[in-house]
Amino acid sequence: MIEFKNVNKWFNKLHVLNNINLKIPKGEVLVICGPSGSGKSTLIRCINRLERIQKGEIIVNNTPVHDKSSNLTKLRAQIGFVFQQFHLYPHMTVLQNVMLAPVNVKKLDKKVAEKIAREKLEKVGLTEKASAYPAQLSGGQQQRVAIARGLAMSPEIMLFDEPTSALDPEMIGEVLDVMVKLVSEGMTMCVVTHEMGFAKKVAHRVLFMDEGTIVETGTPDDFFDHPKTDRAAEFISKILTH
């Protein structure tokens, strides 16, 4: 479903993605971890072309993402993206946030879009917040709205860029619960996170990155309990003892 072929990216001289080869089949839940600056966020941001790549190819559902002739709007419509800082639209209510793309990208009738939006809000447990503004919500609630906003486009893939890193500890659980629910529905997911509990519970595969390369991949149990490389071992001990 998602394929990276010899992907390279530089930020000026910094080689942020160094020859990445990766296949993510439909239905897989991939957790990406690694120290900050290792290129993990950049990796998933390339999947919907929030970042450009300089060499190589990324193919999503047979569409070459970085080919100029590809229909970017259509591609992005099938990929949901959840940001660390939520990025809800502050001038719109929760319901309007969730409806915006279905109405304007998919050109759905407003009533149909509203029905879908309310379904997705119910899924993330925020039905009663439909007419609230983002500023009136807690961080955890905002992130759940952001997930609902992504789901409203009925995407085939959901990308999460450190979805719980900006949250107070007591709110992390409610967001992870929603994500676990998505896993159980068979959503294809790439999640940049350091939440080991989440990774162990639901990830099919863990990918460890450092300095722009994929250092190690494995099942969550193998990776966290028996890392193959010293770098991964060091990283795991750091997130365990922080």
Binding site: K74, F81, F83, L100, N104, V105
Partner: peptide
């Protein structure tokens, strides 16, 4: 920048990003 990115990643065109968000 996050507002642009959120709007872009949901599939809105550049003109829609400007007009709506």
């Amino acid at each position: 920048k996050g507002q642009w990115e959120a709007a872009a990643s949901s599939g809105l065109t550049l003109a829609q990003q400007l007009r709506l968000v």
